[in-house]
Amino acid sequence: MEAPIPEAILWDDWHAVAELETVRQWDQITTTLFGRDLTVTDAAPGVRIAYADGSKTLPASIKYGLVWTCLGTPQRDVIDFPESAEPDRYVISTGSFGIRVSGLRLVENFLDIAHFPYVHTGYLGVESSPQVLPYTVRVTDEDEILVTDCRFLQPQSSPVSTGSLDVGYLFHVLRPYTVLLKKTNAVEPDRSDTIVLFVQPVDEERCVGHTLVMSLHAGDPDEACRWFQRLIIGQDRRILENQRPRRLPLDLKSELPVRADLASITYRRWLLDHGVRYGAIAP
């Protein structure tokens, strides 16, 4: 049976489907997007992407060390981050990880500060200090979600931090499967690092998270950045894979929210308003 076609806002967008380095290593890899098997073939300097059954060649793009494709008709470009051009920033792909849960749930987890002290104890939070201070959430004129005024005490906020830091956070949902955070740099506290999560919806209940770090030159080599992101995702995976249902419920009454869940509630409502139902449970 043919996999369902998702809403146009998802279908006609670009999605990261592989790390470029992995494609170069293996010459060809297979992956799945919206339930459709694809092959990604090394064709240096580019890549070739097609349905695995050979029925159709797809548009391909390379950006941020990731390979991108669109199964529908692209309505906009692969997302652009102005800070990626700043000369003193690393822009590195920090790994791609398969997780057995709806991609929407992975985005929601990324927005959730309240789990830091429990799931990321010793790194992004401490159990003795679990309270989430009030923060601000709004939908911008560009129709994106912006979460500001978050502060959180973190024992090891990044691979280069040397002690506890009162870390300022900003979260930004740019597209249904694209979310970033900016957090205080551990070495230069007046500037911030950007971490982006691009979610590849494998199907409605499985996804791949592709992570990108745009970090200040502060002595952290690529390897340390990748190590840190892998550690954090490795800790999240077990929690995410045990969430039921695997799809994200959009009925705001189906789970009991508290004040700290405001970002998540706004995301669910925003998905609802944009008609996103793929990987979700409609109210």
Partner: peptide
């Protein structure tokens, strides 16, 4: 490895 680190082969 297949599911988590995308060892597709």
């Amino acid at each position: 490895l297949h599911d988590g680190l995308l060892y597709h082969h």
